[in-house]
Nucleic acid binder design. Structure first.
Length: 314
DNA sequence: CGGATTTGACCTGCGC
DNA sequence: GCGCAGGTCAAATCCG
């Protein structure tokens, strides 16, 4: 029932062209709403994390997909972890069809949601008896990287590895090391393009990134942080999507709420960078913005930002 | 020594 | 009902 994940270009480009290719696109979550890629993964913190943006030229695309964590493909720039060159993301959430955005109608969405839920709850194998069948938001990112496990600012513990049927590469299973955080992620290489690492996040972090202090600003990470050489490219702290042609398409539900850690002050305190996505889906970083974003930030996450903007439009 | 990773076994759901 | 595949567990091992 789920529709194929819609392919959407990622908006967050975060950088100057030199390092990051012109970003275009947005992240859609299952609802078909757009979200900042980072937000999706709760990377808001990542922005601050050093690993992010370490390497320039990254392409990322995000696609919201239905239950099957299908990675979206795209080509945009985003920096991710260690040596990501490109990435795309897809999200699977409780009801929302990427292909059927808000336009579909709430009724549809609700139905879809319900269906998906049923599917996920029922279809999803409950790990072991007694496990809560709750479905967790999932986001898949395609990242062009040499390393399988991209550092996203959180600490992960590998708990399994499995050979995948359609892939010559094994899939690795990671779990957030935080005792209270049940976020998991699967990492596998694309059989089509071995250079592409597909990372699927499941769940939302309920804690700040251990690796990078929210206030990364004052505490420089051990690793070479964001591209210093690229002054023009501001670390992706927050993205602001300017209302595109289709505001509906730009709806950003609370993706961040999924993975994004609880609203930490650091977010707000952190200098926000704005990523503006133009109607043509081109994203550009405006630099630290304090306007709407800040307002949004009050809410806690970028997601809020975007949505608000969009909402306005709507 | 503690934490992370590896790896085979086990469990569960789905499709046929 | 059976087999397959995905996902998880947990003991063994590795590494800092």
């Amino acid at each position: 029932m789920e529709e194929p994940a819609a392919e959407i270009p990622l908006p967050f480009s975060a950088q100057s062209p030199s390092t990051f290719p012109p970003p275009r696109g947005t992240f859609l979550d299952a609802d078909g709403s757009d979200r900042g890629f980072l937000e999706l993964i709760g990377l808001q913190e990542l922005h601050q994390s050093s690993f992010l943006f370490q390497q320039p030229a990254a392409r990322a695309t995000c696609v919201a997909s239905a239950p099957p964590p299908v990675q979206a493909k795209s080509s945009d720039a985003v920096n991710f972890p260690a040596n990501p060159s490109s990435m795309s993301c897809s999200s699977t959430e409780t009801g929302a069809n990427p292909t059927k955005p808000a336009t579909a109608g709430e009724a549809n969405e609700q139905e879809a949601e319900t269906k998906e839920r049923c599917k996920e709850e029922g279809g999803k194998k409950k790990k072991k008896k007694g496990q809560k069948p709750q479905k967790e938001p999932r986001f898949a990112f395609e990242t062009r990287s040499e390393v399988d496990h991209l550092d996203d600012g959180y600490r992960w513990r590998k708990y399994g590895q499995k050979a995948v049927k359609n892939s010559r590469f094994p899939r690795s299973y990671y779990r957030c090391t935080s005792a209270t955080c049940g976020v998991k992620k699967r990492v596998e290489r694309s059989s089509d393009d071995p250079a592409v690492v597909v990372t699927t996040y499941e769940g939302q972090h309920n804690h700040p990134s251990p690796v990078v202090p929210r206030g990364a600003h004052h505490a420089p990470p051990p690793q070479p942080p964001l591209l210093p050489a690229e002054p023009s490219m501001p670390p992706p702290l927050g993205f602001v999507f300017s209302p595109p042609v289709n505001t509906k398409e730009f709806q950003l539900p609370l993706l961040s709420s999924y993975l994004a850690p609880p609203p930490l002050d650091f977010n707000r305190s952190a200098a926000p960078r704005t990523l503006v996505v133009t109607s043509d889906l081109t994203a550009s970083i405006e630099g630290r913005n304090q306007t709407a974003e800040s307002a949004i930030r009050d809410d806690g996450l970028l997601q809020d930002l975007i949505p608000s903007e969009i909402r306005k439009e709507e």
